[in-house]
Design a protein around this nucleic acid. Structure first.
Lengths: 153, 153
DNA sequence: GGCTAATAAGTTGCGCGCGACTTAATCGAG
DNA sequence: CTCGATTAAGTCGCGCGCAACTTATTAGCC
């Protein structure tokens, strides 16, 4: 614990460089920036890419389940998915047995984009330059952090 | 290495849950969400809070240096700082010896907000629920990640 | 069956975050 | 000194991300 600038002793300082939250914020933006040129070639933004990851795994998912997987609100997803539909990657249709729900499914074009996306995780993984141990450790601690911070109270 | 869904062997899969980048994205948004009610009381957004952290440390900084500290473009900072000025927390003035540069400095109101913000890092730190070792490990690995991912090539 | 509560998706408003661009001032090679 | 290059700040457009709200549908209690 290095206290600086004459701060009285507190658990955490108000210095930017001391803060984990800033390291997190900066890392997240830096990684997204690294994705950008790769995803530009696929015609996707990073959040759109995340939605496509869900669809490439399950082929047909409700908006609600996409929201659960990505922890995003319908107010974010609805316009985003409409843009994917406009791009011809995705189809939206009301479910017959529950007219409230909308099922999002891949078009052939959306499915075939998967092949062009295969190299993306490897390219990003390489750019991250972490050892397999560091990579797993980072995932573990970020998931723990997300769980803890999302608790009520 | 667990390969799933009949994927051919690749260094990284296209599964959402395997990806460090998503853990990072989710953690960053979860932490920001945790800040929101605390910062609402101060009348700040999270990026505005980051700018205030820089100012609380240095009192008077150029837009350029704020950008360097936070890794943000002037196109993001200029409107943000104008909002801080409108809120009465900050003053903007052209530097006499270099009319290109704008110096941002704290008003008395901006300075006094620091006291009300003192409890914020501790509250967030507690909510994160990491051991001091995990906290430091997370900072270290996120900084390494940011450095690596920001490299050219 | 009827009616209230809950749920799913979507709209609106606002603040980022960034690429592309503009404006204005300073730098620096010749 | 001059003039093209660089630098600092700012504008504009667009896609998130989320709070607050609306609309439509279903669930469930009586």
């Amino acid at each position: 614990m290095t206290t600086e600038h004459g701060d009285t002793a507190e658990a955490y300082s108000l210095l930017l460089d001391d803060q984990l939250c800033f390291a997190l914020y900066a890392a997240s933006r830096a990684v997204t920036a690294r994705y950008r040129p790769l995803l530009d070639e696929l015609g996707l933004t990073y959040p759109q890419y995340l939605v496509m990851l869900v669809l490439w795994d399950r082929d047909s998912v409700s908006v609600r389940d996409i929201g659960t997987a990505l922890q995003l609100e319908s107010s974010t997803l609805s316009p985003l998915i409409k843009r994917l539909e406009t791009a011809g990657l995705v189809l939206r249709q009301r479910r017959a047995d529950d007219e409230r729900s909308v099922t999002v499914s891949l078009t052939d074009e959306g499915r075939s984009l998967r092949n062009r996306a295969r190299c993306v995780p490897t390219a990003i993984g390489d750019a991250m330059g972490l050892t397999p141990q560091q990579h797993e450790a980072a995932k573990d601690i970020l998931r723990l952090l997300t769980t803890n911070v999302s608790r009520v109270g």
